[in-house]
Write a protein that binds this DNA or RNA. Structure first.
Lengths: 343, 343
DNA sequence: CGACGTCTTGAAGAGTCTCAACCATGGTGG
DNA sequence: CCACCATGGTTGAGACTCTTCAAGACGTCG
């Protein structure tokens, strides 16, 4: 898609020849004879850059810049003055009003191209589009630096339903579950988080009170990032909004899958699924078999059932040689076969 | 919090006096004697603005700008050249390299302040923070204009699981459900949408194939917005990312609530809840009672149960004078009492 | 060693699903 | 105009899963 350039200039010769040169260079040009038309065209076409003379009838360049800056739709369009006014004071006034460049006439074509392209580069890099390949991690790291690291003991509650969210959390090392509590006290875990995960962003994102609880499952080290810093980064850094939009939508996807299982899968299948989930998130060894340590209550909360039922299922699985039990540790003998449990 | 200004200038007098003036004005200043130190300080302190001389030993101003632009952390910091080089060619070179302003020495303090403040204003407005009060609706409207409106018949499928997402959808008028299909064919509705709702954004947001299906419940009019336009708006417009982050997190919240109910509430309670949901989303009359038309299958999908069970529950509700039935229309007699169903 | 918390096992019962038959409605074609 | 069928909705009975309550086993820690 060609970049759109709006040229606002009262001198017919300069306007037409500039437009012609830019057309040749592959830009799509719009031209305006004076400020009023220029502002209209800017609003209508939302060009990618605006070149504007200062001395014009009807509405001068300063006025154009002022009006465009006032409107949020046009405020971020790069704005270059092209003018015969080469006095220092004029240039300062233009820049102080928020122009991005100030090109004095007469200028040659190369100067013009370079000025335009330089502003495009600039815009692209501040909006972050395109150049954020390895950038994301750097920005997230920066965000994490805004917070303070804190060791948190086993089974400590980090936040509870109804609290006002004040922080975003990032797990350096450890395990955290988020869960909801049913009227009668039964719990349902919606998510497990571990090293390298952010959590607690959902309530921050929609500005309401927490709708779930979070607690550690083992001793952990967690960074608390103040809400204000998170919000600033979320809205002003592409990399951050992209990351969290990804996290949010991934979260929805997981919940959708879990809901379908809750509705129609047998407890047997759901227990198997929960074991797999815990194994992939919390296990250290990665061969086909692996060992996990989790209380029956936590497992039951994950499955959405009574802990007795979990016990029975684990006993069944043990009989079928899918798992082994030593103490409260569960040793999965074959992830593969566990995955293939039907019903 | 005071704004941080980094001054890179080899002339001791100018550097110190500039720093002094800015200190007085309430800025926090850092000074560097030449380019190398300047780049280090910039990376270390991430100042809010950088003032930089051009002619310096060790590393000149152009070099500083080049290095800072290469690093994503510093690329978006406003950069002003302050220099004795007043030649047109020098100024052009500076601006073409991506400087934000070019102040020639000698300059007076007012010029300096104005230059700095102008760049702060500029930064603030491009990052869009603050000025987006009534803006959101306008930007969303603009986004909707990118798509084409289409009438869609009753019970038409809009997308299915596994499809490649190509559009964002917006309902002008109508009713749409999204649902997942269990292995054996049973369905579970995750969401109901109606006039004024966007849907289908979740899969676009995380760039994977659809994980659910969408179908109309009545004849509807729906705008299809191409993915490419949505992505552009999502990443480049504050208002749009804010809106969809809100939608995504609201969605998570709803699903969390629904999951808890699926896990621990009785079918009776869930049917009541589903009726309420349908009533609030699709009903036209708004008194305490209202009428809804929905098939038993759709209701069953919403509850996550068999349609026979729904029938039985509705019969119970009718006996208890909570609802009335005429054909397949359900007439809710008291939303209030339906809400208060326990267990 | 006993006390406590956690886990396991047992038996009874409630709740929900499945299968099947039946009813109401509305549209279709002879 | 009416018999016919298709569809969606309702009702019944039995089966099955899972929960609940209760008691016992295990392991850990003072």
């Amino acid at each position: 898609m060609n970049k759109k350039v709006l040229i606002i200039e009262d001198n017919d010769d300069i306007r037409e020849s500039t437009a012609e040169v830019l057309d040749l260079a592959g830009y799509e040009t719009f031209t305006a004879k004076h400020g009023k038309v220029g502002v209209d065209l800017a609003l209508k076409h939302l060009p990618d850059i605006i070149l504007c003379d200062i001395m014009m009838p009807e509405l001068d360049g300063y006025g154009v810049l002022y009006l465009l800056n006032k409107n949020p739709k046009t405020a971020s369009i790069p704005f270059i003055f092209i003018t015969a006014k080469s006095e220092r004071a004029d240039m300062r006034k233009g820049m102080e009003m928020g122009a991005d460049d100030y090109l004095t006439k007469p200028f040659d074509d190369v100067e013009l191209f370079k000025a335009i392209e330089s502003r495009f580069r600039k815009k692209q890099q501040t909006s972050g589009f395109g150049t954020n390949a390895g950038n994301t991690e750097a920005v997230l790291e920066e965000l994490r630096k805004k917070g303070r690291s804190k060791p948190i003991g086993n089974k400590q509650i980090i936040y509870v339903e109804g609290d006002e969210p004040t922080h975003l959390y990032f797990i350096i090392k450890g395990q955290v579950k988020t869960y909801k509590r049913f009227k009668d006290g039964r719990e349902l875990s919606s998510n497990l988080y571990h090293d390298g995960d952010f959590f607690g962003y959902e309530s921050l994102c929609n500005g309401e009170l927490y709708s779930d609880n979070a607690a550690t499952l083992i001793e952990s080290e967690i960074i608390q990032i103040p809400k204000i810093d998170f919000m600033e980064y979320l809205l002003n850094h592409q990399a951050v909004s992209k990351t969290f939009i990804g996290l949010l939508s991934g979260n929805i996807r997981d919940k959708g899958k879990q809901m379908l299982q809750l509705a129609y899968s047998s407890v047997r299948k759901r227990v198997a699924e929960a074991l797999l989930q815990v194994a992939t998130k919390f296990s250290n060894d990665t061969s086909d078999g692996c060992t996990i340590r989790i209380s029956r209550d936590d497992l039951a909360a994950l499955v959405g059932t009574a802990s007795e039922t979990v016990s029975r299922m684990l006993a069944d699985f043990k009989d079928e040689k899918l798992i082994d039990k030593t103490g409260n540790a569960i040793n999965i003998l074959s992830l593969e076969r566990l995955k293939n449990i039907k019903q």
